Measured scan of single mutants.
Amino acid sequence: EVRVRALYDYEGQEHDELSFKAGDELTKMEDEDEQGWCKGRLDNGQVGLYPANYVEAIQ
């Protein structure tokens, strides 16, 4: 698992997508798939998908 930080706001479009604001931190659980989606977990425990290019790894 990798900690990542959102670069942009994202509003989930489907029930299985996460929503977050730029600057939020979350945990990447799985690497992106061929469509460019990652599985992650918000700090509130919600698990879902998000676009991989909306986040950067925290060093």
Rank of each mutant, 00 (worst) to 15 (best):
F20W: 00
E17H: 05
N53M: 06
M29N: 04
E30K: 06
Q13Y: 03
K28G: 05
P51F: 04
G23Q: 04
Q46Y: 10
Q59T: 11
K28D: 01
E17A: 10
V55E: 02
D9H: 04
A57G: 14
Q13R: 08
G36R: 05
V47I: 12
Y50L: 11
Q46V: 11
Y10L: 10
G40E: 02
K28M: 14
E32F: 11
A22K: 08
Y8M: 13
Q46S: 13
R41D: 00
T27K: 04
D31K: 08
V2W: 06
Q46D: 15
R5W: 03
Q59H: 13
Y10A: 12
Q35E: 15
E1L: 03
M29E: 07
L49R: 14
V55D: 04
D16G: 10
Q59D: 04
G40C: 03
E11F: 14
E34Y: 15
M29R: 03
D43S: 10
Q35T: 15
A52D: 07
V4K: 03
K28T: 12
E11N: 15
M29I: 15
G40A: 05
Y50R: 01
Q46M: 13
E32V: 11
V4W: 03
R41E: 09
Q46K: 13
I58N: 06
Q59A: 04
K39Q: 08
L49N: 12
G45L: 03
G45N: 11
G40F: 00
L7I: 12
L26Q: 00
L18Q: 01
D16N: 11
G23F: 05
G36I: 07
W37A: 06
D33Y: 07
G40T: 00
N44F: 03
V47W: 04
D43A: 10
N44R: 09
A57D: 15
G45F: 02
V55F: 03
I58Q: 05
W37E: 04
G45T: 02
S19Y: 08
D33C: 11
L7A: 03
L49Y: 15
V4D: 05
D31C: 08
A6M: 03
Y8K: 07
N44I: 01
Y50F: 12
A57M: 11
E56D: 14
L7K: 13
A6H: 00
E11Y: 11
D33M: 10
L18P: 00
P51I: 05
E14V: 07
E30F: 04
Y50M: 08
D43K: 13
R5C: 04
Y54I: 06
K39W: 09
V55W: 01
A22I: 04
F20C: 01
M29K: 03
S19H: 03
T27V: 14
Y8V: 06
K21C: 06
G48I: 02
V55Q: 02
D24R: 03
Y8F: 09
P51Y: 05
D31R: 10
D16K: 09
K28Q: 15
E30G: 12
G48L: 01
Q13K: 07
L26I: 14
Q35M: 14
S19L: 03
G23E: 04
K39Y: 10
G45Y: 02
E30L: 06
E30Y: 15
D33H: 07
D16R: 08
G12M: 12
G36L: 09
N53P: 12
C38A: 14
K39R: 14
Y10H: 07
L42I: 06
M29F: 09
Y8T: 12
Y54G: 06
Y10R: 07
Q13S: 07
K28F: 04
C38M: 07
Q35H: 15
T27P: 00
Q13M: 05
I58V: 14
C38S: 14
G48T: 00
E17G: 09
G36V: 06
E32S: 10
E56P: 01
A52W: 10
R5E: 02
S19M: 03
D24K: 00
D9T: 12
Q35A: 09
I58P: 15
K28H: 11
R41A: 09
E14P: 10
A6P: 01
E17N: 04
V47E: 15
K28S: 08
E25R: 12
L7M: 14
Y54V: 10
F20Y: 02
N44T: 01
E32Q: 15
E56S: 09
S19G: 06
L18H: 01
F20H: 00
L26T: 01
Q13P: 04
T27N: 03
G36P: 06
P51S: 06
A57N: 13
Q46T: 12
L49T: 14
D24L: 06
Y10I: 01
L7T: 12
E34F: 07
G45C: 04
W37P: 02
E34N: 15
N44K: 05
F20Q: 01
L49M: 09
E32R: 15
V2M: 15
K28L: 10
E30R: 15
E56F: 06
Y8H: 10
N53H: 13
G12A: 13
S19A: 13
K39I: 09
V55C: 15
E56A: 11
L18T: 01
G12N: 10
K21A: 13
H15C: 06
G23K: 11
A57S: 11
D24P: 01
R41M: 09
E17D: 05
N44W: 02
V55T: 14
A22R: 08
A52F: 11
L42E: 02
Y8W: 09
D16S: 12
D31H: 09
G36D: 08
H15W: 08
S19W: 07
L49P: 04
C38H: 07
E17I: 08
A52T: 11
Y50W: 01
E34A: 12
C38Q: 15
L49E: 05
E14L: 13
P51D: 05
G12P: 12
M29D: 04
L49G: 06
S19V: 05
D31L: 10
H15F: 15
K21T: 13
K39P: 03
D16F: 11
G45H: 06
A22L: 10
E25W: 12
I58T: 04
G12R: 12
D16H: 11
D33R: 10
D33A: 12
N53S: 13
T27A: 13
D33K: 07
R41Y: 06
C38W: 02
D9M: 03
E32T: 14
E14N: 11
K28N: 13
E34M: 13
K28E: 11
T27D: 04
G23M: 04
Q35V: 13
L26V: 10
W37F: 13
Q13T: 04
N53R: 11
A52Y: 03
D43W: 13
Q59F: 00
T27M: 10
G48E: 00
Q46H: 15
L26R: 00
E1N: 05
L42M: 13
K28I: 08
D33T: 14
V4N: 03
E25Y: 15
F20E: 02
D9K: 03
N44V: 04
V4I: 06
G12D: 02
D9L: 01
E30N: 14
E56I: 05
V2K: 14
Q35W: 11
G12W: 01
E30P: 08
E56V: 11
G12T: 10
D43V: 10
T27G: 04
R3N: 04
E25V: 14
G23I: 00
V47T: 09
E32W: 10
E32C: 11
L18A: 01
A52K: 15
G45D: 07
L7P: 02
D33G: 09
L49W: 15
E11P: 14
A57K: 11
G36N: 06
T27C: 14
K28Y: 10
D31P: 15
V2S: 15
A22M: 07
Y8I: 11
N44H: 07
P51K: 15
D16E: 14
R5A: 04
W37V: 09
T27I: 13
G48Q: 00
G23P: 02
E17Q: 13
E34L: 11
E25F: 11
D9W: 00
D33Q: 15
R5I: 08
H15I: 09
R5F: 05
C38N: 04
S19C: 10
A6W: 00
N44Q: 06
A57E: 07
R5N: 03
D9C: 15
E11I: 13
D9G: 04
L26N: 01
V2Y: 14
E56G: 08
L7H: 05
